[in-house]
Design a binder for these strands. Structure first.
Lengths: 104, 104
DNA sequence: TCGCTATTTAGGAATATACCTAATTAGCGA
DNA sequence: TCGCTAATTAGGTATATTCCTAAATAGCGA
């Protein structure tokens, strides 16, 4: 959990996650989207991987990275549940008389 | 958004948010729950406040802090929607796998 | 007013983070 | 094998973060 929040506390790392949300990409393809050296991107990728937010797979000369969405959503959801339990918003919600069933 | 994620990337600050989830507390009451100097807690509180995650109100000698749950949930939700759009988790809904645990 | 409590501000030291360049490792294909 | 590309590791520097103690600010009540 600590690793996840530390990983997210960086603009380039969140940007990498956003790129990987749309497609699997090689380290080089990721680096090409930033004005930053490849070693720096490699370091960011290793931080994201240590946090369990992405996984990598080597195929030939290339290392492909992709998202692990479960860890991200589970971690953030677990945290939000602790700090802003569902019970509270739900109570407020019942004030509105529109019977809207889907509030997630 | 950057400030929110930076604020969350700290164990003591997340702990403060968890305390404030249950009750409004004065700066001193918060500090009493940590083995850390009051100035350090004060600094953490100012970081949380700058991120819009808590607000403070001075009443007499005391400064009371409370949560601003909307900013927290809106920021995290906005981020999760960008990286893990709802459409994707719903598709693999039947999988139901467990993520890895980590200390907070 | 004075003394006391609550809190923040100021200043400083230790540690961590984020970059960079240079060097290394690994795979591909002639 | 050699030469080339992809990626990471190693080493170093600048900056940011996190903690501390000491000092300042502000309110309360005698």
């Amino acid at each position: 959990m600590q690793r996840v929040f530390e990983a997210l506390a960086s603009v380039p790392r969140r940007k990498i996650l956003a790129y990987l949300a749309h497609a699997e990409l090689s380290a080089g393809e990721i680096a090409a989207r930033f004005e930053m050296s490849k070693p720096s991107i490699s370091q960011h990728l290793s931080i994201l991987e240590a946090a369990g937010l992405v996984t990598s797979e080597k195929r030939g000369q290339f290392v492909y990275y992709r998202l692990v969405p479960d860890n991200l959503t589970n971690t953030l959801n677990g945290f939000v549940q602790e700090v802003c339990p569902v019970a509270r918003p739900l109570k407020r919600e019942s004030k509105a008389r529109t019977g809207n069933p889907d509030a997630s």
